[in-house]
Design a protein around this nucleic acid. Structure first.
Length: 578
RNA sequence: GGCGGCGUAGCUCAGUUGGUUAGAGCGAUGGACUCAUAACCCAUAGGUCAGUGGUUCAACUCCACUCGCCGCUACCA
C-alpha cells in the first residue's frame, strides 16, 4: 500500500464553555481514531484543531461571566485542551483563532483570503437595515432580538406570540425578519433596539452552484482511496444547492474578530464573519505548526496547496453547511487551495437518564456529562469505547448512563478484558512466562487464525470508510471469538493430557491478544498500550503497526504480568447531577 | 408550507448495489465448564421488517399513498 498524506481537522470548538460528551462524539473522537488508524498503517497524518474565539457568542459569554473576552477564550481554550489530552485525543497542534501566538498568523491568512476573493469579484457590497442596540453599542444578530410575532395566520389574524426570537417564531413556526418584529427587545440589554443602516460584503455563492453540485455529486462513490461521503451530508447539501444558494454576508459589525482588510470607509470598524475566519483556522494553525516545528510558517502551503494531501474534515452536523458548501465555495473562489476530500459529519447526541425521557444535551438544565467531571473519576477508554459504540453516524443516538455501565461491564470487562487476562495469566503460569511453541495446528486452530485475519480485514475496510461503529463491533466479535476458542480447546484440560497441544492453544491465544491490542489501539489507545506492555511489544509513540495484527509473536517471547484493563462500574457512584 | 431523516425480536440497533430458512449485543429460559476481573462457552424461545397498494420471476431493500416520531428552513454558532 502506497504511503499517503493526510491533513485531518476537527471542527473548532467554540471557546465559551466546557466540553461535554456530545462534542467529543461528534467531531473529535472519530477524528482521533481515524488519525491513529492512518498512522498505524504507515500513512503521514497531521491532525489540526484549535478554538474558535471570534464572533459574538464569546462576547456575550464574557459579558455574562464579567470578564474580558480575551480572558474568557483563553480560559476555555486551556480547559478544552486539557479535556482532549485527558481523553487521548492527540492533536499535533491545538491553536485558537484569537490566542496569543496564533492571532497574527490567523488574521494575516484570513485577510489574505478575503482580499483575494474580493479582488476576484466574488463579493457583493450591500447596505441593509438591521437592529442596533444603542446601550450595548452593537448591531444585534437575529437570535438576540425578541419581540411579538407579526406573521399573518391563514385565518387573517396576526400570530401575536410575544416571545418570538428574531430568527423564528416558536408559536407559529414562521421565519422572522427581525426588522418587522412588533416591539422588539434586545436580549442583551433588554432595551429597545433601533433600525440602522449598515453595509456588508456578501459572498456570491450562486457563482459556485454548478461547481459545487458537480463536486458533491462526485462524492457519492468511494474513489482514489477516499471514502464515499455519508448520505446525510450529500442529501442535505445537494438539496440546498437545488434550492439555490443565496449571497451570504461575510462581514459583521463587531469589535472582536478579524478586521475587514479593505481600504473602504464602509469597512471601518467591521470584522470578518466568524464563519469566514473559523475554517481558515485550520490553515493558520497548520502554519503555526510549521513555524513551531520547522521554523517557516509558509510551510502550510505544502499541506494545503499540494494535490497529494488528502484534506479530511470531521464535524458535527450543525457545521455541514459551512464545511460542505460555504468553505468549499471560499476555496474555489480563492483558487489556489485544495478542496476537502472528505467531510465526515456526525449527528447530535442526546442524553438519557433513568426514569426520564431522552432529551437534548443542555447546559442550562444541567443535562450534560462534562468531560472534566468524567475524567475526575474514570478512565478515558470506557468513554471512548461507549461513544464510538453509540456513534451518531447516521442519526441521533442517546448517551444512556445505564447502557454505558452495562457495556463497560459486559463488553469491555467481561468479554475483552477477561479474555486478555485469562490468556496471559494461564500462559504465564504454565509456560514459564513466555509464548509457547506453536506446535501442530488442527483445523480448529487454523480456523481461528483465519478468523483473526478476517476481522482485521473487516475492521480495515470499515475504518477506511469512516464507519467507526461497525469497525468496533467487529473488534468485539474478535474478543468474543477468543473466548469461544479457549472454551472449545479447553487448555485447562489439555494441560493435564497433552502439554504440547495446550501450548499450541495458548500460542494462538496470545496471537489473538496481540491482534486485539493492535486493532483496538485507534479506539482505546490507553488499554492497547497496557496490553502492549503485557506482551512486551515495541510501540513507537503509541503506534502499533497495523499489520502486526496478523504477524505471529515467536515462541519464547517473554510475557509480563497481566494487568487489569477495565474495572467494574456502578451507576450509583458516577455522574452526579450536573 | 418546503427540504431531509426515522419507524426491523422485550430493549438498543445492523442489514453496503432487490435474490435462498431476516442478523448481532443485551435481557429471558435451559445446559456445560472452572484457566480467568463469579467472568466465559453452548443451545432455545422471540419478528405479518409501521400500514395499504404497486413494479418484479423475486422487496426489509424500488415506487405511490397513509399513520406516527424527529431535524433543518440558512447572517446563534
Amino acid at each position: 500500500m502506497p504511503k499517503r498524506r493526510y491533513l485531518v481537522t476537527s471542527g473548532l470548538p467554540y471557546s465559551n464553555g466546557r466540553l461535554h460528551v456530545g462534542h467529543v462524539a461528534g467531531a473529535y473522537l472519530p477524528a482521533d481514531t481515524y488519525v491513529r488508524f492512518l498512522r498505524a498503517r504507515g500513512h503521514d497524518a497531521l491532525f489540526v484543531c484549535g478554538s474558535d474565539d471570534n464572533g459574538v457568542a464569546s462576547l456575550i459569554s464574557a459579558r455574562k461571566e464579567g470578564i474580558p473576552v480575551e480572558e474568557l477564550t483563553a480560559k476555555y481554550n486551556a480547559r478544552q485542551a486539557e479535556d482532549f489530552k485527558g481523553l487521548g485525543i492527540r492533536f499535533d497542534i491545538f491553536g485558537g483563532t484569537h490566542q496569543p501566538g496564533f492571532t497574527d498568523l490567523h488574521n494575516r491568512l484570513s485577510q489574505e483570503m478575503f482580499t483575494t476573493i474580493h479582488d476576484k469579484g466574488y463579493f457583493t457590497k450591500k447596505t441593509t437595515k438591521q437592529l442596533y442596540d444603542v446601550e450595548a453599542g452593537q448591531f444585534l444578530p437575529d437570535r438576540y432580538v425578541k419581540g411579538t410575532c407579526y406573521h399573518k395566520l391563514p385565518d387573517g389574524s396576526v400570530c401575536g406570540y410575544t416571545e418570538a426570537y428574531g430568527d423564528q417564531c416558536e408559536s407559529c413556526g414562521h421565519a422572522i425578519d427581525p426588522i418587522e418584529l412588533i416591539e422588539p427587545t434586545s436580549t442583551i440589554t433588554g432595551t429597545k433596539p433601533e433600525p440602522r443602516e449598515t453595509t456588508h460584503w456578501y459572498l456570491r455563492l450562486d457563482a459556485f452552484e454548478k461547481q459545487l453540485q458537480e463536486w458533491l455529486e462526485g462524492k457519492r462513490e468511494a474513489a482514489n482511496g477516499d471514502p464515499a461521503w455519508r448520505e446525510t451530508v450529500l442529501n442535505f447539501t445537494l438539496g440546498q444547492v437545488r434550492q439555490g444558494l443565496p449571497e451570504r454576508a461575510m462581514t459583521r459589525d463587531l469589535d472582536w474578530g478579524v478586521p475587514v482588510p479593505l481600504d473602504d470607509p464602509d469597512a471601518a470598524g467591521k470584522m470578518l464573519y466568524v464563519w469566514f475566519d473559523a475554517p481558515i483556522g485550520y490553515v493558520s494553525f497548520t502554519a503555526a505548526y510549521c513555524q513551531q516545528t520547522g521554523g517557516d510558517w509558509a510551510g502550510y502551503k505544502n499541506w494545503w496547496k499540494d494535490p497529494d494531501t488528502r484534506l479530511v474534515h470531521f464535524i458535527g452536523e450543525d457545521n455541514t453547511v459551512f464545511h460542505a458548501l460555504i468553505w468549499p465555495a471560499m476555496l474555489m473562489a480563492e483558487g489556489t487551495y485544495q478542496l476537502p476530500r472528505t467531510v465526515v459529519a456526525n449527528s447530535f447526541l442526546n442524553i438519557k437518564v433513568e426514569g426520564q425521557e431522552e432529551q437534548k444535551i443542555s447546559k442550562s438544565r444541567g443535562m450534560a456529562i462534562w468531560v472534566e467531571e468524567y475524567l475526575k473519576n474514570l478512565e478515558p477508554d470506557p468513554l471512548r469505547y461507549y461513544l464510538t459504540a453509540i456513534s451518531p453516524e447516521t442519526s441521533r443516538t442517546a448517551f444512556d448512563i445505564d447502557d454505558f455501565i452495562a457495556r463497560n461491564n459486559g463488553e469491555l470487562l467481561n468479554a475483552l478484558g477477561n479474555f486478555v487476562n485469562r490468556t496471559i495469566t494461564f500462559t504465564r503460569k504454565h509456560f514459564e512466562g513466555a509464548v509457547p511453541e506453536p506446535g501442530e495446528r488442527s483445523q480448529a486452530d487454523q480456523d481461528h487464525l483465519d478468523f483473526i485475519a478476517a476481522q482485521k480485514e473487516k475492521i480495515t475496510l470499515s475504518l477506511d470508510a469512516c464507519r467507526f461503529k461497525a469497525a468496533l463491533a467487529e473488534l468485539m466479535a474478535l474478543a468474543r471469538a477468543g473466548n469461544g476458542y479457549l472454551d472449545l480447546k479447553k487448555p485447562w484440560t489439555q494441560r493435564k493430557e497433552d502439554m504440547a497441544a495446550c501450548g499450541t492453544t495458548m500460542n494462538i491465544g496470545i496471537q489473538t491478544v496481540r491482534a486485539l491490542a493492535v486493532l483496538m489501539a485507534p479506539f482505546m489507545p490507553f488499554s492497547a498500550e497496557k496490553i502492549a506492555g503485557m506482551l512486551n511489544l515495541e510501540s513507537e509513540d503509541g503506534v502499533l503497526p497495523w499489520d502486526d495484527a496478523t504477524s505471529e509473536l515467536g515462541a519464547g517471547h517473554p510475557l509480563a504480568e497481566a494487568e487489569i484493563l477495565f474495572r467494574k462500574l456502578d451507576a450509583s457512584e458516577l455522574f452526579g447531577a450536573d
